[in-house]
């Protein structure tokens, strides 16, 4: 079985093992870096394409600051024309952070939304990615006509059954994205800009 231990062979074997393993991993990193980057870029592009009308080019990930919080966003263009902004908006949901990519066209309408990551309860809040009634209402959502709170709170957002907290958080994410959009468009030219608030939702429904 194992060799008898002395200082020399312990240092030698452990050192050599580490050296060899690092070399293998270094090589593997170089080989897989390109596909990993490509996969990440493709995922982002797919998310942008999901929330905005067809566009030709998307900008690099940039940040816009709204009331002390950084919102990552992508600018999508067709030629010189602005197609819209895809803004990543993170709020506190029921089970943790909920990150929603919100596509907003220059006429300040929500084109569509897509969940990037969430930790909501499976079968309840997690339905914010699948519930057809909830998901479809965001396509073409016009915040100047509809009120961005759930129906229970007097707004126009259809909540997911039994998941009011998630639905509220989702509406808040869209609202914050709109505030970020307003900042991007120049805060002065804005009507009805809403202050983003990241108050934590409290109380169970």
């Amino acid at each position: 079985m194992a060799a008898k231990s002395n200082l020399t062979n312990m240092v030698l074997v452990l050192g050599l093992t580490c050296l060899l393993c690092s070399a293998i991993l270094g090589g593997a990193y170089v080989l897989t870096k390109e596909p990993i980057d490509a996969a990440a870029a493709e995922k982002t592009n797919r998310a942008i394409a999901q929330v905005l009308p067809s566009f030709e080019s998307a900008s690099e990930r940039s940040f816009v600051e709204v009331y002390g919080k950084d919102f990552p966003y992508y600018e999508a263009k067709s030629g010189e024309d602005l197609v819209g902004y895809a803004i990543e908006s993170t709020v506190v949901g029921f089970g943790g952070n909920l990150t929603v990519m919100v596509g907003i066209t220059p006429d300040r309408k929500v084109c569509n939304t897509s969940v990037l990551s969430h930790s909501e309860t499976p079968g309840l809040g997690a339905k914010c990615t699948t519930d057809p009634k909830f998901v479809s209402q965001w396509a073409g959502f016009d915040p100047s006509v509809k009120k961005l709170t759930v129906k229970k709170d007097g707004g126009d957002v259809d909540a997911i059954t039994a998941s009011t907290i998630t639905s509220r958080a989702y509406a808040l994410a869209v609202e914050n994205a709109l505030a970020a959009f307003d900042t991007l468009q120049g805060a002065d030219a804005v009507t009805g800009a809403t202050k983003p608030n990241d108050k934590e939702e409290s109380g169970n429904e």
Partner: peptide, 13 residues
Amino acid sequence: IAPVVPDKVHIPV
């Protein structure tokens, strides 16, 4: 590699 690994450091290896 087991035959050449000294007993005292086998877990880290």
